[in-house]
Structures are given as C-alpha cells and as structure tokens.
C-alpha cells in the first residue's frame, strides 16, 4: 500500500524500470496499480544495441511481478516524508 501510494506521486515523471530479465526501460510513468503493474509512455530501451527490436516500442505495460528495480528521479522524492510514512505503516502493522 505504501509503495502504491508512493509511486502514484511519481506519475508524469521519468522513471527507469529494470526487469528481472535485465531489460531496462526508461519512460514517463503513466499509471501504477495496487499490484505495482506499471504503465509507461515515450519509452526508450536503455540498452538499444542489445534489444534493437524494442526501439519502436512507445507505450508499454510492465507486470509488477517482473520488475526488479525502479529508478526514480531523485529531485521528486521527498526522502524525509517517505521515511516517516514507512515508519508509520510499520507501526500500524504491529
């Protein structure tokens, strides 16, 4: 729930999604759902040499379960707020 809320604050921002199969996709975050399925627009594959066939892809839907990392734009992340929210969610779970 925390990450779902958190990712929603990044809608419209540039993120890089790294998949468990090593494919890295950079694009504008369009939407995220509670399963952390991620929709991206204006997509670029980071390593175009390795995945030339993905160059023409512009909109994509990434299944939450295949995501390894999401790289976030640092200037759009309020780490103090995130830390506070994480602490509160952990407390609420006790």
């Amino acid at each position: 729930m925390l990450f779902y809320s958190f990712f929603k604050t990044l809608v419209g921002k540039q993120v890089t999604v790294e998949l468990k199969n090593d494919l890295e996709i950079r694009g504008t975050l369009v939407s995220v759902d509670q399963f952390l399925n991620i929709k991206l627009d204006d997509v670029h594959v980071v390593d175009e040499q390795k995945y030339p066939h993905m160059m023409s892809v512009k909109n994509c839907f990434v299944r939450g379960s295949v995501v390894r990392y999401v790289s976030l734009p640092a200037q759009h992340v309020d780490t103090a707020l995130l830390q506070d929210a994480a602490r509160r969610e952990a407390q609420a779970g006790r």
Binding site: F6, K8, V11, G12, V30, D78, D84, A85, E89, Q91
Partner: peptide
C-alpha cells in the same frame, strides 16, 4: 482504528498538495 488512522495519514501525505508542485501527466 489505529491502522485506519495511519492509512488515512499516508493517503493525505501522498495525495495531498505536492510540496514540490509540478503535478500532471495523470490519466
């Protein structure tokens, strides 16, 4: 009750006015 309050707080801090401004791109 406690969990609900915490969750509401979370929703308010994340979905309230963005301190950094620059919203947009939402569907």
């Amino acid at each position: 009750g406690l969990q609900e309050a915490a969750l509401q707080h979370l929703d308010s801090v994340f979905e309230g006015p963005n301190p950094l401004g620059n919203l947009g791109g939402n569907s």
